[in-house]
Each structure stands twice: as C-alpha cells, then as structure tokens.
C-alpha cells in the first residue's frame, strides 16, 4: 500500500464571476507515492502541481476523488481531524513562510507548541534540529537576518519538528540561487536517507528532479501526462512536454529547426544515437566507426548522468561512402538505437 495515494482526484474552482467558466486545476489525477520515495512532480506554472501538493495535507480540498494518506482517506475528514493528520506531514515553501516575529528557534518550536509538547522537550528537539540543518549558531536570530538558503534550512527544521513521515516541498528551491539550491537539495536528500522521510518535491526545474528525485510525474494542464522512475523518463521521455523538460538539462534530439541549421553545415549523412545506461558501450560504438574508416563529427546532443547511470543522445555527421556507412550502421544497430535524420 502506497504511503500517499491519489485516486481520480479533481479540483475544480468555481467561476471567478458569473458567466466565466469554472477552472479545472486538477483533472482526475491518480498517483502513488511509496514510503521512502523522493517523488518529483514537475510542470510549468499553472500546470496544477502546487494545488496537487496542497491537497495532500488538505490545505485545499479536492472536488472529487480519494486522497489516501497512510491508509486514511483525508477527503472525508473534518477540519479538526485534519489538524492531527497535518502533524504527520511537514511542508516547506518557495517563500519560506517563516514567522517574522519569532526567532529561528521559536519558529522551529512552533509545530511542537501546536502539538502540545512540554517546554523542555521542545528546547531539546529544537537544538537537535538546528544542529541537523547546521544553524545552531542562528537560534536567536530573526528570519530577516538570514539569507535565502538559511531561511529554507529553518523551514526544513520546522517542517521536521514533529517527526513527520511525509515532507511536501512546494517549489522549495525556486527562490534560491543555483549553489544554494544544491545545498538545500543535499539537505533534503539527507532528510530522506537519515530519517526515512518520504518527500514530494514540486518544481519547474528539471535539475531539481535530476539531483534528488527517484520517481517523477510530469504535469500539464492539471493532468499527469507521464510518470515513472526518473532514469526512464529522462532517458526516454514519451510526452512532448517531458522531452522539453529533459532538454533543459541535457540536449536530446535536434528539433526540425535545429536540424535545418545542421544541414547547412553538413552535407553528409546525419544519425542520432541513443545512449541509455552502461548497457550501451560508447567505446564499442565509436570503435565500429573508426574500424570501418568512417569519419564522424559530434554535431548535437549530450550525455548526462542520473543516479550514476549515464544517458543521452548524440547526433553525428558522418562522412564516407554510402555502402560502408550502411554496413557500419547495421553493426551499431545491434548495440543501440540509431535514428537516421534526413
């Protein structure tokens, strides 16, 4: 049984004014997040991903469908019952949402106050958490004295205070610079590994998915259009939107326009080779080409790595006589997928 399970969940907002159409933010989404996953949900703004994650802790209520969290359908719970459920689900936000009137330590203590923990317990837990996120020396500072990365680390400490089993990260790194983003992502990874917290990451940056997620769902116009292990989606995206996201971190197959440019410079034959995992040996592929005496030039593409597994596409411009090229391509086809572009 998945830890978080959505079954045909929809969220429809009533019309903003009379006569206007109602807005379907989430369109019958089904999704299973297993315990221990770092589940990435990626989509452009307006795709419905933030709404989706806010349904999981019932900050917003679904219009229809089942939302089962830890075996309990939260769609049917009362507001009072939901407050208990929320203690088991931490959340961090793009804008951090720290209480400006409280010190760092008292921000982290806030969920513990809500949960009714006694003061000594709170103090000990806050010290432990601030130590974990590396901000023990900032306990007495106020949020406006911290950098963005530090604020998000306080946000993470606060979200973990009540030892939740699920952490929701709503664009948690979108307001941070690339370096700080990686610090925060590394911290989230530690949260997952050291505490076994299941994390749902909402983002529009494929880089975030690539860095920490184990599974990914691609959302577009309120629907999940593709899902699967991150490696599979990255190395072989099916939907056009998925391919666009993948192309933000690694160049894939040239588009028609890009191909036209390549054609102007290269009169010979152009082929795209797919490299997926170590199953495809690059040395073997390039060895075939040189043995046959076919000169080549890499004109497009790139190789990237997810969880230690390389993947990518390389487009080559070949020069040589046709029969020889045909022969060598036949050999290479036994090693990997070859697409000849004309």
């Amino acid at each position: 049984m998945a830890l978080v399970s959505l079954r045909n969940v929809s969220k429809v907002y009533p019309p903003a004014s009379k006569g206007a159409p109602s807005v379907t933010a989430i369109d019958s989404v089904s999704l299973d997040v297993e315990a221990g996953d770092i589940y990435g949900i990626i989509g452009y703004s307006g795709a419905g991903k933030s709404t989706l994650v806010r349904l999981v802790n019932a900050l917003e209520h679904s219009t229809s469908g089942e939302i089962i969290v830890d075996g309990q359908d939260i769609a049917v719970l009362s507001e009072r019952e939901l407050r208990k459920v929320r203690l088991g689900i931490g959340m961090i936000f793009q804008q951090f949402n720290l209480l400006g009137s409280r010190t760092v330590a008292r921000n982290v203590a806030y969920p513990l106050e809500v949960a009714g923990h006694p003061k000594e317990q709170r103090t000990a837990r806050v010290a432990e958490l601030l130590d974990f996120v590396g901000l023990a020396d900032k306990a007495g500072s106020f949020p406006d004295q911290l950098s963005g990365g530090q604020k998000q680390r306080v946000g993470i400490a606060r979200a973990l205070a009540t030892q939740p089993s699920i952490l929701l990260a709503d664009e948690a790194t979108s307001a941070l610079d690339p370096e700080t983003t990686h610090e925060v992502l590394a911290l989230l990874k530690r949260v997952n590994v050291e505490f076994g917290v299941t994390i749902i990451v909402i983002t529009h940056e494929m880089d975030v998915i690539q860095t920490i997620a184990t599974k990914v769902a691609v959302m577009d116009q309120g629907r999940v259009i593709e899902r699967g292990p991150v490696f599979d989606v990255f190395s072989n995206p099916q939907a056009a939107a998925s391919a666009r996201f993948v192309s933000t971190v690694v160049k894939g197959v040239p588009s028609a326009a890009e191909l036209a440019v390549l054609r102007e410079r290269h009169t010979g034959r152009i082929v795209t080779l797919a490299f997926r995992d170590s199953a495809v040996d690059q040395t073997a592929v390039f060895g075939e080409l040189s043995r046959a005496g076919v000169a080549f030039e890499v004109v497009y593409g790139g190789i990237n790595e997810i969880q230690g597994r390389p993947f990518g596409h390389l487009t080559l411009a070949l020069s040589g006589v046709d029969p020889v090229i045909d022969q060598v391509l036949a050999h290479i086809r036994t090693l990997t997928t070859v697409t000849e572009v004309r």
Binding site: N57, L59, E79, R80, R83, K84, V85, R86, L87, I89, G90, M91, F93, Q95, N97, L98, L99, G100, S101, R102, Y110, P111, E113, V114, A115, R158, A159, A161, T162, L168
Partner: peptide, 23 residues
C-alpha cells in the same frame, strides 16, 4: 503564506489569530 505554514503544522483558527496574525 505564513498562515499556510501555520495551518500545515495543524494550527487551528484561534491559535493562528494569537500566534501568527496578531504578532
């Protein structure tokens, strides 16, 4: 957003008024 944050840790309306809104 800070009200969302308070709600996300299970705070109810009365608590939100006194620990978030007014401060």
């Amino acid at each position: 957003g800070v009200i969302d944050a308070a709600r996300s840790v299970g705070a109810g309306p009365i608590r939100i008024i006194f620990t978030v809104l007014l401060p």
